[in-house]
Amino acid sequence: MKVVNNRAWLFVLPVVILVAFNALIPMMTVVNYSVQETFGNNVFFWQGLDWFIQLMRSERFHAALGRQFMFTGLILLIEVPLGVIIALSMPRKGFWVPVCLVTMALPMLIPWNVVGAMWNIFTLPDIGLLGYFLNHTLGIDYDMTQDPFAAWVTIITMDVWHWTSLVVLLSYAGLVSIPDAYYQAAKIDGASNWSVFRYIQLPKMKRVLTIAVLLRFMDSFNIYTEPFVLTGGGPGNSTTLLSIDLVKIALGQFDLGPAAAMSLIYFAITLLVSWLFYTLMTKDDAK
């Protein structure tokens, strides 16, 4: 006969509470906001799916989403190959290994708002080191506070500077885990450097690169602090990414309902794209 022991619930309780406060309750609060309208005083009016429908038709949302995809796409296209190239050219043993690793890790140790502020000052045309140099020494017309193109170049460069190291460190970890014997076998087979990369290094790096792409996707898709401090979304709306727009709606305009609906869609897109990346990149392993 089975003995029913309800004490088991006590053991899962801490996890239930943790997950509830950490994820479920905040999430459901947002869901709750997303289907209602409020003007404060804790008074709510039922809206149904109105906010969602409104958002899906909103040109402002489409534009922000488009900018977000462009930003994430560009930084992935630059950071992943660049990170792999840097990792490949780093020494595998000797005195320079720790030097390279620490130098690589430095940008990632800097707080995000400091990174934004740093690049802001760095690129100011009148006093910034880079801004002044470009404008006054090289004679290139560069002002990221006025010119949307310059603003984009700056936020992309900043992100590449800040986060390529992550791809480098992960790829490097994958590279150093390859035993010498494989390189020797490839040499004996008569393989060229390209074949060694294509058939030995790349397959060995695949798993860590999957992680790197996923992390960089999620991080860059949800990025807020650095571009907010650097450009504040401007000039105009040219660098207003999704998260910046979201904060404007929620805290600037205090439209809690639409902001909540936007959060949920934002979250759904992040989740969907991450899942797609993961499924595509691990497809071969399943076989």
Partner: peptide
């Protein structure tokens, strides 16, 4: 270079791609 010597090597531990 090793690539041009036209040789084969079998290790103690099993090295296959």
């Amino acid at each position: 270079s090793t690539q041009k010597r036209n040789i084969s090597l079998v290790h103690q531990f099993f090295v296959n791609y």
